[in-house]
Design a binder for these strands. Structure first.
Lengths: 120, 120
DNA sequence: TTCGATACCTAGAGCCTCAATGCATCAAGA
DNA sequence: TCTTGATGCATTGAGGCTCTAGGTATCGAA
């Protein structure tokens, strides 16, 4: 599904931070994780993700370090910092406020997220 | 509550369209309605709303016409068009996809919206 | 007459996404 | 051996958006 630019912009940072809260990860894997989490509906391009990661790093919400895959490819691993965790909580609160407001004016609630197998 | 720029950008058009789906309205009243719907958490400035309304009009999602209040002040009334209604449905679907994805990665569900009197 | 609420609008700074492009490695298959 | 697809990181330029700050004007009440 095509998602509006603004909505992508609003959800990119929170989604990345929340993914890194699960465990540290790297660009390409984050891309795949987003696709998986959304049941294939969200498909980010790498060209939009890397600037987001760099911005989060500049802001101190994530830290990066170079590593390697088992196969030998270089990877840049990102970890959530303490500040990033706090930031994520703020974003969650903000998201809730907006989501509640939209529901109040007739936006339908999200359907329950079906188990992953439902798409397999 | 302060809401991030990107989240405001993402929610502004859907919220305005949804408000106009209730009934036709004008700038100042929309501002008040947003505050009311959000329980006071969202406080838009007029400087951000008017450009949004103009953009929606250019896009054909709303139509405008001048009127007057009982007291005689001039008002520009906006109505949702057929295209705007369709657009709103698309935005609702998009919002749901993103919201579900965020929940899948640990975002808390919105608390049930309490009755308006709860804030009075 | 002055102030707060009502009511509209715009300009410029600054920020962001997106598409396109580039570089490089690895595994698999022709 | 060579090519292709997946993996992996990054930047640039065009275009679009919000936000702050400002401007104009009317009405009712103090």
């Amino acid at each position: 599904m095509n998602i509006d630019k603004d909505l992508v912009a609003a959800s990119a940072a929170p989604l990345v931070l929340a993914i890194l809260r699960e465990e540290e990860s790297y660009g390409y894997a984050i891309l795949k994780r987003v696709e998986e989490l959304s049941g294939g509906e969200l498909q980010w391009t790498d060209g939009m993700l890397y600037p987001v990661l760099h911005r989060l790093e500049r802001a101190g919400y994530v830290e990066a370090s170079w590593g390697r895959s088992e196969a030998g490819r270089r990877r840049k691993y990102y970890r959530l910092t303490g500040g990033g965790a706090k930031r994520l909580e703020v974003q969650q609160r903000q998201w809730r406020v907006v989501d509640r407001t939209l529901r109040a004016v007739g936006f339908p609630a999200a359907l329950r997220w079906r188990a992953k197998e439902a798409w397999a």
